[in-house]
Every structure is written in C-alpha cells, then in structure tokens.
Design a protein around this nucleic acid. Structure first.
Lengths: 168, 168
DNA sequence: TATTGTTATACTCTATAACTATA
DNA sequence: TATAGTTATAGAGTATAACAATA
C-alpha cells in the first residue's frame, strides 16, 4: 500500500530513530545540516514573502548589520564576516549604496580598501528590518520557551564564533 | 582611519551588542536567521568540496534520508518534509533513480502518486553519506561539549517539528 | 475543483577566472 | 607576489505558471 501523508507530528529525526537501529555511525541524529537547512528554508521564504518585490538580495541584510557593527569595515571584511563571496559582495554593496543605507570612502592607509559605514537612513532601515524579521521569526520560535530560545542563540553564537575564528 | 580586519575573536552578535544600545526591539541578538545562514554557508561549502564534481544536488541527501525514514512516501511528501519545491523535487528524484538509490512504484490507491522506497544500494550510499557528513560537521561542532551539541540538536528538532506541523 | 507529478522558463545565487590598482 | 575590489560568465538553485492524469 501507499504511504498516505499524515500530518507530521514528529520531526524527521525522531522517525528515523524509530525506524533505524540506534547506530551512532549511520544515524542522522547527530547531524546538524538537515536541521539548519529546513529552518533556513522556512525563514528565507517568509522573509522574501514579507519584503516582497522590492526585496533585498541574499546577504544584504547581514552585510548592513555587519557594517553597522563595525564602521569602517572593508568589503573583504564583510565577506569574512558573512561568508559572502567577494564577487557577490560587489552587487550587495552597490545595492546598499543605491539605497543610501551605507557610504563608501577610500581608505587613506590602504588605498585598495573601501571603508564602509552606515548612514542615518541605513540605521533606520536596519532597525525596521530587524523589527520585521523578529515578527517573521516569532511564529517559528514560538515553540520554544524563552530560556530555550536564549540557549539556542547562545549555542549557535558559539558555533558561528568558532567558524569565524577557523575561516580567518 | 580605516578598519583593519583583525582576527575575529567574537561573533557578530557580541560586537553588535557592544556597539549598539541593548534595545531588544532593534538588536539582532534575538534573531535566528543570521546565525543559521552563517553556519549553513560553511557546512554547504565543506559538503560540496568533499563530494566534489560528482556531488549531489541540493536537497538530494535530505530526500534520500526522508525516503529511508518513510518507505512509500510520495514526491509531495518529500517536498513537505524537506521544504523542496515540487518542481525541484523532480530533478532530485530523477537523480536518485539514476543512481539506483531509490525505486519508484505507482500507488494502487492513488494513481497520481509515486511510492518511493530506498534500495539496498541506497542504504549503503546513505550510510556512507552520513559518515562523511559527520566528518565534515565534526570540526564545526568541536567547539561544543557533547551536552551542548545534544542540546543544540534537540532545540533545532523542536523548531523543525514545529515548522512541519505549521506548514502541513 | 483540487492534487500529483511534470515541463518550460525566468530569475537569482554562487563560484571561478581574469583583470586593475595597490601593497 | 599577494591582496582588495571589479567584471564577466557559467552553473546551480528557486519559483512560477501551465499542463495531463487522477481524485
């Protein structure tokens, strides 16, 4: 007979665990990728739907936040921070400039670099984006207690920090 | 003066917190997306680099795991589980069939559906992929204790389960 | 009418390589 | 020689709409 799709009441992990022997070497129980991917897909779609046709391109929000956090950062700095490719960063920076959210000045110490900084308009846009993103993420995070959500953020921060250390 | 890129010893969150007032409504401290995105980029690149030219397309590994976990699942079931678009799923399923990792039978109860199941060859491929992915994720997760890693997985499972419930 | 799977298509994202200007 | 930024380009990912078969 065919598998009829019931409402999925348990995550894939739990179902896999039930159907496969508890063998740590072949189980996906300890794999992070599946989980990150699934949550990421959901959040990305909701974000794209909320920002609509005038939506930001991939990495634009993250780059704006990085510039706000580190005024004077260079483009390659953005790439290291966000994981963006340097060729992709060009379009992102161009778009942020076009929107008037950031400014670009040549660096006097190293004329190859652009020193990027956020504008007042960019600050407002960032605050608005953050607020909208919070509203998008809220229903996804609603299944966690406040403590659990805080723990999740802290654990991911630890991993992200480790990645930044390793990749640079 | 210009911002010279030092080795990043703290995650973006911590730096933002230091430079911005602790205003919950405009801080990215409680946002999940940045963190997921950054970790996902790292893992995706490492995975692509490890699988090389004969690499699987996006969503193929997840789909194989979903079929292994739920024999007889339909294509639309895969989409619901993995977040894959139904048009994208076609190419993924085709590729899994071409590799001989899954089999496809028409469903007698609902002739529109394909009943998908994993083959013995597919089981071996899946076990191998899981093992390789564990080796890829290990260095990323090495910054966490075993307890922390378990907690991270459990928290993400809770979120993924919630998303599956909501989206279906 | 709605759903499953399929195709075609357009658009975006990502990575690579080649180039310039600086270091 | 190496790095920062730019451009062009190719390949992969993603989403939409239209369609046939079935419910």
């Amino acid at each position: 007979m065919c598998y009829r799709m019931p409402p999925s009441k348990r995550p894939l992990r739990a179902r896999l665990q039930a159907s496969a022997p508890d063998d740590a070497s072949t189980s996906i129980d300890a794999l992070l990728g599946f989980r990150l991917r699934r949550v990421n897909i959901r959040l990305s779609r909701d974000f794209a739907a909320a920002t609509g046709d005038a939506g930001l391109r991939s990495g634009e929000f993250t780059s704006l936040a990085a510039i706000a956090a580190r005024p004077g950062i260079s483009q390659s700095g953005i790439c290291r921070e966000t994981g963006l490719d340097k060729s992709a960063a060009v379009a992102v920076i161009d778009d942020l400039l076009r929107r008037g959210w950031i400014e670009r000045g040549r660096c006097s110490e190293d004329k190859r670099r652009h020193a990027l900084s956020i504008t007042a308009s960019g600050e407002r846009a960032l605050a608005d984006l953050v607020a909208r993103t919070r509203r998008i993420e809220a229903p996804v995070l609603s299944c966690l207690t406040e403590l659990e959500a805080t723990m999740l953020m802290a654990l991911l921060d630890k991993v992200v920090g480790h990645i930044l250390d390793e990749d640079n």
